[in-house]
Structure formats: structure tokens, C-alpha cells
Design a protein around this nucleic acid. Structure first.
Lengths: 335, 335
DNA sequence: CTGAAAGCGCTTACAG
DNA sequence: CTGAAAGCGCTTACAG
């Protein structure tokens, strides 16, 4: 493998000139630059990562802490991981993946061995055990997700509270007075999971504000449980005209299948809105109105905020991405 | 951050002694070792990753090439990624994640910058564009999955052919003479995806061997498509008494839901076997007999084979993990 | 616009 | 059992 010495020799310059030509950190004569570029291309030279880390101030490596809980929904999770790894590449960074219980130890290891320049945390719980560690770490960190106490932290996430309000407001404006809310499985809330709780609480509040009757169910991801949940909604809200889903894709499919076999027509008999979904709802039958969870946007933003910190921009911020509403014809006004 | 010099000074020894004490590469006096350990603990010393990479022969970093196709099934994929990242940790390795179109360029970058000691490839197609590159790379590589031409490559995967034969043999032994096979969506086969094709071809062959009538369908992951597939099976095989699923979890759920609403009793009316599934089939209703796709085993084995190569063990091998059959009561003999 | 040289923090022969 | 020292391949003041 060619080294910077080989390139310097081939181009007839010193290694510092090669280094500067490659980093662009000082002006280089056109002829010199051409000779260097040619030598680099011909030798297939690529700087040695270890040497660069040791001599320079950057490792060009980013740690992605992605602990996976038993109840982690893989597709959404994968979208975030992808978004972050790809965004990192745009800044010429590679991503070191930290999983599972390695969460806290792994972060410590990354930092004290100076392997990475920054960290992005995924899957942040309200009361996340990585947060205390992150506070004392002297390295750029961004949380994708909002813990209970954000003091001193840089965070980014969809504005779930605004998404919940938007859900209620849209349906209330269409005349709906009884709305069923289908949430995630119970244990997610019990564990202190982040966004399901934020969404639920804001939804309850917005419903109260708008004078909308609300019932909340948390089915498991299986047909029988979804069926029972729908029954419960019908019992509690005899005049229910709309359902909001803050749930995973399989629950959507099961619900639509169930309504179909019950002969329920959407949106004539029932309006349906999918809230904070990371999967495409236009593939469903029928396609559903949706307030997307923009994993690509928040994931990428997590990387950008980390890079900003690397550039010395270090004021902690909590960035909330405003929700958007996409119409697919699954809601209508009450007759 | 403490360096090896700080530790050496605190322990009253030379840095080489510290280095050897930490690596265990030569004998150290008990008293000396104690002083070094104490200094390391007190200073919170951890070797600088860049310096280690540059001076040593190992980077302790493994590249995981995990391109995600549009039709990648996230849960199975995530299980592999997890298995590999965790197995790597057991060898004191961290994992650099390479995604998407970065596939080929990313590998090149890893190798020429000497960032990683080895590579594991996931999601290997029959005719994978990473394979030619990997052949010319002078670094340990293991493919999890078997490409069409394995010359010179180290690969590991479930023995899908054996799994297909095992499926047919078990059902044939129970007296089933007409078996429906529900595969993955059509485009997977069209794209030259790896294991679905291997499974299908071996299944067809084994069925012929056993004199079993077979019909093969490839539904999309939606209720209507699964329903149509089942109809097609019933048309083609009027005496069908068993169905084998080589499909993703949602298709399982949809099929069982559909059979339930049709009043089909399992296994009395129909035997069902889930083949090469990476998710737990005992959570289904009813639980299904399964030949598991042991992602944890093959993923971990992929890492182990890479480590073997690092230790100088470099004969290319194709390791096929033998399938196992787990009974859950969803199959029975034909009356 | 370019070069000589120090130094980043380790590992590992070489010596004793 | 331990140490002094070379060297890994870069980056970046320091000089000119």
C-alpha cells in the first residue's frame, strides 16, 4: 500500500505539500497540484486511517449508539440507522455501531480511546441510562429523541406533541366528536419509552381542549388483540367516527383487514389517520392519511448537529421537527 | 486523557513494560504488574486507538457490509447485524457499518486506508457485485450467504438445500402427497436473491424425488395477495394437505388469520411448516413447526471465520449450517 | 508557494 | 524480567 512518502517521491515534492494538497489547507501551485493528483491516482494512494487519527485532530468516525430493546420495531429502527450512516458519509465520516448492553461501556470506550469524534444516540428513553454518562463526556453528542431532562443536551426529534395536536385539530375540524386512539403495546409505555408517551399525553390534552371524547387502547401486535382493542373502542365510544393510529405497521394492516371484514367503509363509516408512522401508508388498502415520522430527516439532522458541535458550535439545543399532514383520502367530515 | 507515558511514570516502569503488561505478550513480574494495573485504573487509561492502529498490526475494527435493498426484510436483517456486532465484541472488535450503494466504494475505502482488519458481507446475492472486489482484496473476508461462484471465498450460511429437503421429507413421511409452497415476493427471485432461490430449487427437486405434488406461489406482503395465493394453491392442488412457508412474518400472520376465518383447523385440516424463519413461530396463533434460520449462529460464525483468517488460517471454506426441525404441533399425519 | 522537522501514542524487535 | 529506541504514516506549526 502506497504511503504519503511514495506520493511525495513520485510527484517530486515534500510530504507536507502532499498533505496540504490533499487537505486543501493551504494554497498549492497548479502545476504542483497536478503532479500530486497524478501520483495519487496512479498509486491508488489513500491516507492511513490510524496515522491520520494520531497526527490529526479528527478520526472521521462517528459512534452510533443503537441499543435494541425487545420491543424495538425493526423497520423504523433500520430507517434511522440508515439515515444516520448515510448522512455521516456526506461529511466524510464512517459509523461505528454500538449495540445492546454495550451501550454505556461502549460509549466510554469510544471516547477514552479517542476512536470517534462524536456520538449519536438512538432509541432514547425518557429516563435513559446513557444520558448521565453523555453529560460528563467531553465530546459532541446528539440525541435523536428527547429524554425527560434535556439540560445541557443537544437533541432532535419530531415534535410529537405538535403531531398529536395536529391529529386532534384536523379531525375536530371535520366534526368528529368521538375519537379512538390506538397506541403501541402497553409495555412500551410502562418502560418509559419516549415518543409514545409524549404523543399520548399531548393527544389527551388536545382532545380535552377541543371537547372531543377520547378512548385509548394499547393492543399487542396480533389480530386477536387488535380485534379486542377495536371492540373496546366501540364499547367506550358508541358514536366513534374516527380512529387515530399511533402504532406499528402490522397493527395498521390488521385493523384495516378487520374493518374490511366487518364491512366498515373508510372514510364513509369511519375516518382513519396514521400518526407518526415511519413506513409508507400509501401502500395500505385503503391508503391512509398520515403525519409521517420523518426518520430520514431527524436521523440526518442528528448527524448535522453533531458536526456543528465539532465545528465549535456548542450551545445545547432541542430541535423539534414540525409535523406535516399528508392527505390520502381516509378521513372525511362527519355527515 | 492519560497516555501510556503517564501510566509508565505513575508505575515507575518503562512504556514498553506497560505495553507488554497490557497486551500480555511477555511475562511481567507480579509486583510490577500490580503497580501498572493500579496506575491504569487510577488514571482511567485506555490506549489511543489511532496510535494502536498505526504502531500495531491490528485496528480491532471490523467492517460490516450490509447493503439494504428495497425488499430487505428489516427484522431478519437486524438480527444478523446484532449477532455480528455482538460476536465482534467478544473478540474485542468494534464494527464499522457500511450501507447502501457505498457497498463497493466503502469496502475499498476501508481496505486502502487500513481502517479495518477484516470484513463481513451480509445480504449476499447470487451474483453480488461485491464479490469480484472481495476476491482481489488482501484482507480477511467472510460472506454470510453463498454467491453463485464461491471460488476462493469463505462463506457461511444455513444449508437451505438441506432445509428444503428436510421440509419435504418430514411432510412426505407424514403421508402428505400434495404440498403448497408459499415463497417470498416475486421480485426477490427476479433479482437473483440468494436463499429464496436456493430453497425453492431444492424444494422442487426433493418433491420430485419423493413423488410429492407441489405448487409454488409468491405472494406480496398484503392480505389480498396472500388470499389470492391460497386460492391458487387450492385450485392447483385440490387434495392439498400441507403448506410450507418460506416467507416473512407478516405473511405468516395473514395466512393464519385467513385460514381461521375460513374455519380451517391446524393441523387437522391442514399441516403447516415454517421454513427458514428468523423470527419466533411460537408466538403465532397457532404456534408453527419451524426450521429456523439461525441468524445468531450464522452471523456469529461469520465473525469467527474472519478472526480465524486473521490468525493466519486462510483456506477458503464454504460452511453450511445444518438445519434443525422444531415441533410445535402444527403438522400431523394424513388421516 | 514549498520544505524540513517535530510530534501524535503506541508496538515491537533488539539488548541486557 | 525489564528498558531504550526505532518506527508506524500522518499533520501542522515553524521557516523561508
Amino acid at each position: 500500500m502506497a504511503t504519503i512518502n511514495d506520493v511525495a517521491r513520485a510527484a517530486g515534492v515534500s510530504i507536507s505539500t502532499v498533505s496540504y494538497a490533499l487537505s486543501g489547507k493551504r494554497a498549492i501551485g497548479a502545476a504542483t497540484r497536478d503532479r500530486i493528483d497524478a501520483a495519487v491516482a496512479q498509486l491508488g494512494y489513500r491516507p492511513n486511517a490510524g496515522a491520520r487519527m494520531l497526527a490529526g485532530s479528527r478520526t472521521n468516525l462517528l459512534a452510533l449508539s443503537a441499543p435494541l430493546h425487545a420491543d424495538t420495531y425493526a423497520p423504523a429502527h433500520m430507517t434511522f440507522v440508515l439515515a444516520i450512516a448515510e448522512a455521516a458519509r456526506e461529511f466524510d465520516y464512517d459509523t461505528v455501531l454500538l449495540v445492546q448492553d454495550e451501550a454505556v461501556n461502549g460509549l466510554r470506550r469510544m471516547v477514552s480511546s479517542k476512536l470517534v469524534d462524536g456520538i449519536v444516540l438512538l432509541d432514547v428513553d425518557r429516563d435513559d441510562n446513557r444520558v448521565p454518562l453523555v453529560r460528563e463526556l467531553d465530546i459532541p453528542v446528539t440525541l435523536v429523541g428527547i429524554p425527560a431532562d434535556t439540560a445541557g443536551l443537544t437533541c432532535v426529534d419530531l415534535d410529537f406533541e405538535a403531531a398529536a395536536r395536529l391529529s386532534v385539530e384536523r379531525l375536530a375540524a371535520l366534526g368528529h366528536r368521538q375519537i379512538g386512539l390506538i397506541g403501541h403495546p402497553l409495555d412500551l409505555y410502562a418502560r418509559g419509552s419516549n415518543f409514545p408517551i409524549r404523543f399520548r399525553d399531548a393527544f389527551v390534552e388536545a382532545a380535552a381542549d377541543k371537547g372531543v371524547a377520547l378512548h385509548f387502547v394499547m393492543p399487542e401486535q396480533e389480530p386477536a388483540s387488535v380485534r379486542a382493542a377495536v371492540e373496546e373502542l366501540r364499547q367506550s365510544l358508541p358514536e366513534m367516527t374516527a380512529v387515530v393510529l399511533n402504532a406499528n405497521e402490522p397493527v395498521h394492516t390488521m385493523l384495516l383487514e378487520l374493518l374490511r371484514s366487518d364491512g366498515v367503509s373508510i372514510p364513509n363509516d369511519l375516518s382513519i389517520l396514521s400518526a407518526c408512522s415511519s413506513f409508507p401508508t400509501d401502500m395500505l388498502d385503503p391508503p391512509l392519511d398520515v403525519i409521517p415520522l420523518p426518520a430520514l430527516i431527524t436521523g440526518r439532522r442528528g448527524v448535522e448537529l453533531t458536526m456543528h458541535q465539532l465545528d465549535g458550535f456548542s450551545e445545547p439545543v432541542v430541535e423539534l421537527v414540525p409535523p406535516s399532514y399528508i392527505t390520502r383520502g381516509s378521513t372525511s367530515s362527519v355527515a
